[in-house]
Nucleic acid binder design. Structure first.
Lengths: 184, 184
DNA sequence: GTCCGATGCGTAGCCCGCTACGTACTTGTC
DNA sequence: GACAAGTACGTAGCGGGCTACGCATCGGAC
């Protein structure tokens, strides 16, 4: 039987400061209840650190453009929809990224001869230069992440893949609703 | 030796559509390079699903308020700073959350007799009612997450904790910079 | 050829996280 | 008591994600 949601341990007097509450301690004490918050903190932290690092190194790009760069390098020219399906995000997110990449002259839209609705995006010379400058950093980042994962002694990539698969098979929403019914 | 960043497999003709690229396949093929993006997708997905679920059930709260509710329930009244340190996020994020909770009448600020700069936040009756209504859902969510984690056969919470510890000891930024130097 | 549903892209609007900065109020020190 | 340094909170501004909606174009059915 899983531990239930913690109830007030001992309601302190309201005019008295609580003792030092530390994030890792508090979130950790919640078990699965704090999991999503911790994961969000973790991934947001990685993103923000990456952004700071990119600025520091003067890469002139956003960390999130990473995959778009690699995709365009590998395939020459892609439409917004193609990028969207490859990355598995909502298309407005891709539009937002590519729009800014276009504004900065890293990517250029070319009319699509066979379909006037879409346009193919291609890296500009400047975009290719930024990509080349960023690659060593990505390579270092990859090495750092592999070391980090190695330290944990867990197949992190495999775990992420199995979580993706599990949630694709049965969504978090469904799982929660089902668990709710069973309780009743 | 780790695999390096994939180079264009076979640059397609630009006016030709690429084959079906699927998110899980593409991101998975990148190994560690796609890890942060996949984690972000995963956690954002959980957040958005939770939001939709809360709306569907008419809870009238945001998923992220979860921890603030539990914290206030357990400690009666807390300042913004106390919540900030407990959750381990930047204080403007907490301000944003609590401001909206106050606007919706779930939380009420009380002047702090010993320090005019700060104010203590306390749940209102309405806030306590929302909390009570949400608890069963959190309980179901916890059960669902525990089952999900169990399916993976990995100690997910332990893994997250060890990642947090490892990154706290040596930041992602530092790790990447160091890996960069070693390459040179 | 015409019409209607499907598709591609863009915008609007909401919430999340962060850093940088401003403004009170406290506190420590001379 | 006065002043500097530190602290608590709030705001501004930037980037990220998503859903809902609008508009033009495509494509298949008739």
């Amino acid at each position: 039987m899983p531990q239930s949601i913690p109830t007030p341990p001992r309601p302190l007097r309201d005019d008295v400061a609580i003792g030092a509450l530390h994030a890792r301690d508090y979130l950790g004490s919640l078990g699965a209840l704090g999991l999503t918050a911790r994961l969000k903190r973790l991934t947001d932290g990685l993103l923000h650190e990456a952004r700071a690092l990119y600025d520091e190194l003067g890469l002139g790009i956003e960390p999130n453009w990473h995959l778009v760069f690699l995709l365009l390098e590998a395939h020459g020219a892609l439409t917004v929809t193609e990028i969207t399906t490859a990355l598995g995000v909502a298309h407005p997110s891709v539009v937002a990224m590519t729009t800014r990449m276009i504004e900065r002259g890293l990517v250029k839209p070319h009319p699509n001869p066979t379909d006037a609705r879409s346009k193919r995006l291609r890296l500009t010379p400047k975009g290719r230069a930024r990509l080349a400058a960023a690659k060593p950093v990505w390579e270092a980042s990859r090495a750092a992440l592999e070391t980090l994962m190695g330290e944990t002694g867990v197949d992190v990539l495999g775990l992420v893949a199995s979580l993706e698969r599990a949630l694709e098979a049965r969504s978090y929403r469904t799982r929660t609703l089902d668990a709710r019914v069973e309780e009743t």
